[in-house]
């Protein structure tokens, strides 16, 4: 299972330096330094409460670090607003558990996410071109919801709502795709399809995934980072990580 592309060759897209955060005295993350190269698909694993979601919060400005920096394409984006990180730096994020616009249709959810029309005048005088409509359909097909475009998001199944949010992230056409537990609550079949959706993007997009499901991790991952108690435990290929006795002790045994 060799990586599809030589990670040493591509430039670094995202880098964190000594990222730490403290919630009312609770050290949720300490000193996380890692880098992700362009075109890489990185999986972060770790037990519940290890700080995986918090790590993504710091990248997307949902939370502010108490120390450390986030660098994106070499630029320091620590302290930028969430909207700016999404719009200007093009980092798209899927949250843990579906986080969509419930009482809007599936198509409307995707349309809202399509990037390039975020300012008020742009949105006011926006007219959907044929290319735009085609793009929406294309994404809906990608996430297997083409037949559901006129359903309200709230009427979808849990797995479909997860897909919808994944589709919204695709629609943003981001340079970095962040997916927080994209398969949680999915059936085995749905999980597999999700893996395929993500694998299709491999190489073209840079993807950062948090996942619990080990079958899914095996399906998509080349390179894995393990978090535990807010610290970066170990990084490496999936095989290497699985061999690591520390990792076996804290995580893999209980997950399998």
């Amino acid at each position: 299972m060799a990586p599809t592309l030589n990670p040493e060759a591509a430039p670094v897209l995202l880098e964190t330096r000594g990222l730490s955060v403290n919630f009312n005295g609770f050290q949720a993350l300490s000193d996380i330094s890692l880098s992700i190269r362009q075109g890489e698909l990185r999986v972060i694993i770790g037990p519940n409460g290890a700080g995986k979601t918090t790590f993504m919060d710091l990248i997307t400005a949902k939370a502010r670090p108490s120390a450390g920096q986030v660098l994106f394409e070499g630029q320091d984006i620590t302290g930028k607003s969430a909207a700016e990180i999404a719009r200007r730096y093009k980092i798209g994020r899927k949250f843990q558990g579906p986080n969509v616009f419930d009482n809007m249709t599936v198509a409307e959810n995707i349309e809202l996410a399509i990037a390039g029309y975020e300012s008020l005048p742009q949105s006011l005088f926006f007219r959907a071109s044929a290319a735009f409509r085609h793009r929406v359909t294309e994404i809906l097909e990608q996430i297997e919801l083409a037949d559901y475009r006129d359903f309200m998001a709230t009427d979808l199944s849990h797995g479909q709502r997860q897909w919808l949010e994944i589709g919204m992230v695709f629609a943003q056409d981001p340079k970095l795709i962040i997916l927080d537990e994209p398969t949680s609550g999915m059936t085995a079949d749905e999980t597999k399809k999700t893996g395929e959706m993500i694998k299709k993007l491999k190489g073209e997009h840079t993807i950062l995934v948090v996942e619990h499901d080990m079958d899914f991790v095996r399906q998509v991952a080349d390179y894995v980072t393990v978090f535990n108690f807010g610290k970066l435990l170990v990084e490496g290929t999936l095989e290497a990580v699985q061999q690591n006795p520390e990792v076996q002790a804290v995580y893999l045994k209980e997950a399998d």
Binding site: T60, K62, S81, A82, A83, E84, A86, R87, R88, G92, R93, F95, N99, V100, F101, D102, N103, M104, E108, E111, L112, A113, A115, Y117, E118, L120, Q122, S123, L124, F125, F126, M168, Q172
Partner: peptide
């Protein structure tokens, strides 16, 4: 208009909108 949809997005899930830029 798209603005109208953004307004509904604010009603449904304002914070999600900010992560869409």
């Amino acid at each position: 208009t798209r603005t109208g949809k953004v307004l509904q997005g604010i009603r449904e899930n304002e914070s999600r909108l900010t992560y869409l830029g």
